[in-house]
Amino acid sequence: MEHGTRDIKSSTFCLTDEDHTLANALRFTLNQDPRVVFCGYSIPHPSDAQVNIRVQTTGAHAGLVLKDALQNLRAMCQHIRSTMDGAVKEYKENPPVEAMETEETEE
């Protein structure tokens, strides 16, 4: 859902059934986009599962910028997943021999 669409450069997007989990991660990817002048999010009421994300850009369509941010986040997730799988596989193939020892000294 989108509010304030008179100006394509700045919009507020209302996401239902979302919370800080997505909104904060999204704010990060949005902020990292050079086209974004301002972005932020708010949860109008803690009892409502709803977040408002404000995006203001230098000229690009705010909706497209948000979509790019989402796609970036998804691409990051995919990379994290494959990296994680690789790391777990590597650990299972050659588990560290002194794992127990270092654990004891650390505690």
Partner: peptide, 24 residues
């Protein structure tokens, strides 16, 4: 635990996809 983490990453991906679908 390693599968839990993979599931968590997948859920974040699904959240992104849901919003992308709503925007298009």
């Amino acid at each position: 635990p390693e599968e839990l983490f993979t599931e968590a990453v997948k859920i974040l991906e699904e959240k992104c996809e849901r919003v992308i679908a709503e925007l298009s």
